[in-house]
Design a protein around this nucleic acid. Structure first.
Length: 488
RNA sequence: GGCCCGUUCGUCUAAUGGUCAGGACGUAAGGUUCUCAUCCUUAAAACAGGGGUUCGAUUCCCCUACGGGCUACCA
């Protein structure tokens, strides 16, 4: 069987679009599922758009994502260079070849003429399309004008009639009328290739067997096929995953919020969650289990199961996956992941104990099952780090059901008494719970009327981990101090 | 406008020429020694519409509607 080779070919725009990331994931999975090869290729032929640092940023976020490439810039491989701006000599060679084979022609039309042409076409309600003005120039004329220094582009010569059948692995045959196809530009006047030319040449030269790219490329699909044929090359398989839509149903774009993988990383989403979630956007596993790690995906992925209808990006489900993977994280790793989000809290205190790894670990442990995003850890654990709670806020939260603030404060006195009996060395969640719960039950007291004020006194929050957990982490001295502040 | 792609619960999606149309997220209700969260149980929730083909269509075909994409010397 033919060995599968796929590639991910982003252009460095400064950030990694989540849709592109999903495409990369699919390309990765298609290769891995068959023990094939995945290459990374940088498509930087757009001089206007090129941003120097964008490439570095791309490598960084790709690295974060956990997707590993077998070939690419900085990785190596036998099909390099993997950056299109370094392949100019190759494009020059194939430009000459396609010209010689009659699959393309020189076009000397000025941008002004093209613009005027389009305006007229639109005024006449025609489809704006190059009028093939230069398609049939005599070779002598072409040569002369080139010699004279006229600027020109190279355009692809489309058949005038007939049908082009493009086979998509997901959708089957897609038919296009050749007459609908435009003689689009292959080589710009700068000499650099357009995407349409570079992809075909590169995918062929790099021996890509499965071209994976978004559905938005289907309109140019027949042109690509024609180019392969003009060169006399075999056409690889094409897989066009459906687009990812925003909540409103439109294409996911920068304006509607977070489309960059970097944004999700910065908000505290885990790569595991992002990968699992994105894989399920348009693809589904065989069974009912939707929780799948990259490794499991590699084992079960079958691109034939990729759907064809666009998928709406549902942040709630992403959050669910993220919470799930956060809960699964070994505590040590989670602490490191949370650290950047804890900086502000750490700055709230001078207490070295509260800045210790031990303390931070305990704090994170208590919030682990409550976290949906790592970024929430700061707000959620702030009360642990402050030296004094906001007294007014605590007082406001003290009443519980029919219990008044006054009664709550009375109840707290009892709690203080019980807490004081527990020796420092035995100051744990378990012994606190034992000491307090046993007493409350024995005396048939309402648990909530004691635990609610206790927890509020310790945290100043209406939602938080349980009072015994918090007390243990805070330590005997500070716990008593916080509660006594209300009983005086 | 033209060309192309698509249409199953709110969302991601299964299944099938004859099923109570399944799962997940979300939502609602309940349970789990205070809150939140976790976990568990239960519930509501879908085959876009119209024609065919067929004994029978959600499933196959056609049309319509709706949604989306493309329409650059951008990718």
């Amino acid at each position: 069987m033919e060995k599968i080779r796929t590639r991910f070919a982003p252009s460095p725009t400064g950030f990694l679009h989540i849709g592109n990331f999903r495409t990369a994931l699919f390309a990765y999975l298609i290769a891995r599922a068959e023990h094939g090869t995945l290459a990374l290729r940088i498509e930087d032929t757009d001089e206007k758009r090129y941003v120097g640092e964008a490439e570095e940023a791309l490598f960084r976020i790709l690295d974060w994502s956990g997707l590993k490439f077998d070939e690419g810039p900085g990785i190596g491989g036998e099909y390099g260079p993997y950056v299109q701006s370094q392949r100019q000599a190759i494009y020059d060679k194939y430009r000459d070849e396609i010209l010689a084979k009659g699959g393309a022609y020189h076009c000397f039309c000025s941008p002004e003429r093209l613009e005027k042409m389009r305006a007229e076409q639109q005024a006449n309600k025609q489809a704006p399309r190059y009028d093939r003005h230069c398609r049939d120039l005599y070779p002598e004329e072409v040569e002369e004008r080139i010699k004279a220094g006229e600027k020109y582009v190279i355009r692809q010569k489309m058949p005038l009639d007939g049908e082009v059948v493009a086979h998509d692995e997901l959708r089957g045959d897609i038919k296009f009328q050749a007459s609908e196809l435009e003689d689009h530009v292959l080589i710009k006047s700068s000499g650099m290739p357009t995407y349409q030319f570079a992809v075909v040449v590169d995918d062929h030269l790099m021996e890509i067997t499965h071209v994976v790219r978004g559905e938005d490329w289907i309109p140019s699909f027949p042109k690509n096929i024609l180019l392969y044929k003009s060169f006399g090359w075999d056409v690889p398989k094409f897989v066009h995953p459906p687009l990812i839509l925003n909540k409103g149903g439109g294409k996911l774009s920068k304006r509607q919020g977070d489309v960059a993988v970097e944004d999700y990383r910065d908000k505290g989403y885990l790569t595991e969650a992002l990968i699992n979630f994105c894989a399920l956007l348009g693809w589904h596993p065989k069974g009912d289990n939707e929780i799948l790690t990259l490794k499991e995906l590699e084992e079960t992925f079958d691109y034939k199961n990729i759907g064809t209808s666009p998928a709406v990006f549902d942040i709630d489900k992403l959050d669910y996956f993220n919470g799930y993977y956060i809960r699964q994280k070994p505590l040590g790793e989670l602490v490191e992941l949370c650290r950047p989000f804890l900086e502000k809290n750490l700055a709230l205190t001078d207490n070295p104990r509260k800045q210790s790894k031990d303390f931070i670990t305990k704090v994170v442990e208590l919030e682990q099952e409550r976290l949906k995003k790592l970024s929430e850890i700061g707000e959620l654990t702030r009360f642990f780090f402050v030296d004094k709670l906001d007294a007014a806020k605590v007082l406001l939260l003290l009443p519980w059901k029919k219990l008044t603030a006054e009664q709550a404060r009375e109840n707290l006195k009892l709690i203080v008494g019980l807490m004081e009996k527990i020796p420092e060395v035995n100051w744990t969640n378990d012994s606190l719970e034992e000491g307090i719960m046993d007493y409350l039950k024995k005396n048939e007291l309402r648990v909530g009327e004691y635990l609610w004020p206790m927890r509020v006194a310790l945290t100043g929050e209406k939602a938080s981990p349980g009072p015994f957990d918090v007390a243990e982490v805070l330590g005997k001295a500070e716990s008593l101090e916080r509660i006594k502040a209300l009983t005086i």
